[in-house]
């Protein structure tokens, strides 16, 4: 190695911005282990030192124990079921409306120009502020969370569907026409497969927004669901359990995202 490129190591140092031999998998794992260990030690150190109230930064052991306890707590599963039901109902309603709207906006340039700006600019507004309205319309139960979740993921799915429709390589459409495909064949064999990725990606992102919104709505006003559970634990100042539940929720969200990504073949 040294014989083939004797000058290289020195040169590489002065070219820091483009430095790069291949990174080995072992190095990557070492760095990961290092970061995790470092963070854990720091955390535990802070926890034991008592610099912050011990309650705020509980020992990792306490958090671990709380996670274990949470996982055998039937109330957790009952609330998880409620939230999951809300999220999937939101996704089904908002996603279906979004795909329908997206196809309308993406296939017709005039409709797109007329209405897409509204969808586009409303999409990133803070959806949770519509919650009071949803409560007025649908009551304090699960329906208002479903409505809010559906509203949130509608925009995401509609925009990515419209974008996907417009993003279809026009030459593929011309290929279809040149082979004299019927409208049905164009839809099934060209538009549908060509739009698959953006639409599924929109659904994946929509799942994320629907979940956050439903959970936040639950923290605000509800009597069941994981969001409600978080607020209950918070009101007891049971910090280990709060960390435990948050960690579990993040893992569920991450797993959901990962699974949808795998299923749909889109990356995070």
């Amino acid at each position: 190695m040294a014989a083939t490129e004797p000058v290289r190591p020195k040169a590489a140092r002065s070219q820091g911005w483009t430095a790069g031999g291949p990174v080995s998998g072992r190095d990557t794992n070492l760095i990961r282990i290092g970061i995790v260990l470092g963070a854990a030690i720091l955390w535990e150190g802070v926890s034991r030192s008592g610099w912050l109230f011990q309650d705020v930064v509980p020992s990792l052991l306490a958090i671990g124990a709380a996670i274990g306890k949470m996982l055998v707590n039937p109330a957790f599963y009952a609330n998880l079921q409620v939230t999951a039901g809300e999220v999937f109902a939101s996704l089904a309603i908002g996603g279906a409306l979004g795909i329908f709207t997206g196809i309308a906006l993406g296939s017709n340039r005039f409709l797109g120009a007329a209405f897409e700006p509204y969808v586009y600019y409303l999409a990133p507004t803070p959806r949770i502020i519509f919650f009071p309205v949803m409560i007025m319309w649908f009551g304090v139960g699960a329906a208002s969370k479903i409505a809010l979740g559906a509203l949130s993921c509608f925009f995401t799915v509609a925009l990515s569907t419209a974008g996907g429709m417009r993003g279809i390589d026009t030459v593929l459409i011309r290929v279809g026409k040149s082979f004299r495909a019927t409208p049905w064949q164009m839809g099934m064999k060209i538009y549908l497969p060509a739009m698959r990725v953006p639409v599924l990606n929109g659904i994946r992102l929509g799942f994320g927004t629907a979940m956050v919104t439903a959970l936040l709505a639950e923290t605000k006003l509800s009597n069941q669901g994981l969001g409600y559970m978080i607020m209950q634990i918070y009101s007891r100042f049971d910090m280990p359990s709060l960390y435990a539940l948050l960690i579990i929720v993040f893992i569920i969200a991450g797993a959901g995202n990962l699974i949808l990504g795998r299923v749909t073949g889109t990356n995070a």
Binding site: L52, D55, V56, G208, M211, V212, L215, L216, T219, G227, I230, M231, I233, Y234, F237, M239, L242, Y243, L246, V249, F250, A253, G254, N257, A268
Partner: peptide
């Protein structure tokens, strides 16, 4: 993963802090 995680949910934690 952080970008996709529902981080806002941690707000009660910071309420305590």
């Amino acid at each position: 993963a952080l970008a996709a995680a529902p981080l806002v949910l941690a707000f009660p934690l910071f309420l305590v802090l």
